[in-house]
Design a protein around this nucleic acid. Structure first.
Lengths: 203, 203
DNA sequence: CAAAAATGTAACTAATTGGTTAATATTTTG
DNA sequence: CAAAATATTAACCAATTAGTTACATTTTTG
């Protein structure tokens, strides 16, 4: 139990800091202090800052892609598959709020520093969506559509929804009902699903 | 002519670097070199790094919000308004690729460092969208919808589309037609419009 | 034109940052 | 248990960074 604790603790803490401040904005001294470990321990377990970042991203991206793939691939009906896809991606993003922030930063810098293994996880999700849309087309349920645009719609909308939660909480007004509608990821996922499927379905 | 040239030149160059590397990742010495001006000139014209960032964001966000508001507010029909809204936001984002990158970085850090004046520009766009949706509802053209979700859908999708252009260009395969479909912002905007309006229209 | 105001530069500084080192403590294992 | 492998620490270092200063040049203006 105690074996991997420090390494894990560093990774978790680093993920938070990378999400909050970006790669350059994350200071190794601060990380050590906030982890409650010595700085040399970080370097002992994770080699250097770049490797630590890579480790953090792999640990962050992989389970999310896994969850989406697992949930979708057991379904046969294209509509159900797409609903599961969006719901699971939304849930996974909300469960791991640092994922969206880091993904957005990476996309903002053109995926320059993104490790291939992390990028591959996003490609898995994109490929899965492609399969679902193609299945829908071949069954005469869906109109033809651009996979990439649908993917961007899902990811982009969820990204903004998740990362803006703390920001929106500090906004004025909004009733209890609004609050729920605005902060509940399940409700957001359902709305996104509805919009996309409405447009995709052959009338 | 020569009066504001240096100040403008610094601002333009700084915007690019902030978009590419983020606030912390942008190094003032590099900026000076890439601008072709001395570092002290930067401080002379823009006080310090934080102020420079603020100036850059204001200069970046304001014309984009202006363009969207100008294009939309002359229209009466809710559908046309929404189409204009999405098209103009997409065009403005594509014309100024640094806008999306900076916006994404800001949202990733919860809008922590975003100057109020820049935030207000995004709020203008959101409010405008709210008016359009309300107009559509009152005319019995649109179903009721969550403004925020639609806003996130537009902004999130365009953000990803624009920032991923350089990234996608380095991807393998894709025919000429695919290339056009994938890289042409007008086509992307039309698809987003169609999806959202399809779902919004009362049958 | 000459004084003054504005703008530009090179060299410097104080603080911060990623990374190292050598010594110590803890855990594992033959 | 003792040796070996693993893990942790405090102190240190070289490089980088934001910001400054004193001086030179150009532009404006009375």
């Amino acid at each position: 139990m105690a074996k991997i604790k420090t390494s894990e603790k560093i990774l978790k803490c680093a993920t938070r800091l990378f999400a909050q401040h970006g790669y350059d904005g994350t200071i190794m001294d601060d990380l050590a202090e906030q982890c409650g470990v010595n700085k040399a321990s970080i370097y002992y377990h994770h080699k250097d800052k770049a490797t630590l970042y890579e480790n953090a991203l792999i640990a962050l991206f992989t389970p999310i892609a896994d969850a989406v793939v697992a949930a979708v691939s057991v379904e046969d009906d294209p509509v159900t598959r797409l609903e599961s896809h969006i719901r699971m991606f939304a849930r996974a993003s909300a469960d791991n709020p640092y994922f969206s922030a880091i993904l957005m930063r990476e996309l903002a810098s053109g995926g320059a520093n993104m490790p291939v293994s992390a990028r591959r996880q996003m490609e898995r999700v994109l490929a899965l969506l492609g399969e679902t849309l193609l299945l829908g087309e071949s069954k005469n349920i869906f109109k033809p559509a651009e996979t990439l645009i649908i993917h961007f719609m899902i990811v982009g909308t969820i990204n903004l929804f998740v990362t803006s939660i703390p920001f929106r909480k500090s906004l004025p007004g909004a009733s209890r009902a609004d609050q729920r509608k605005n902060f509940d990821i399940e409700s957001a996922a359902a709305q996104i699903s509805k919009i996309i499927i409405d447009s995709l379905l052959l009338k």
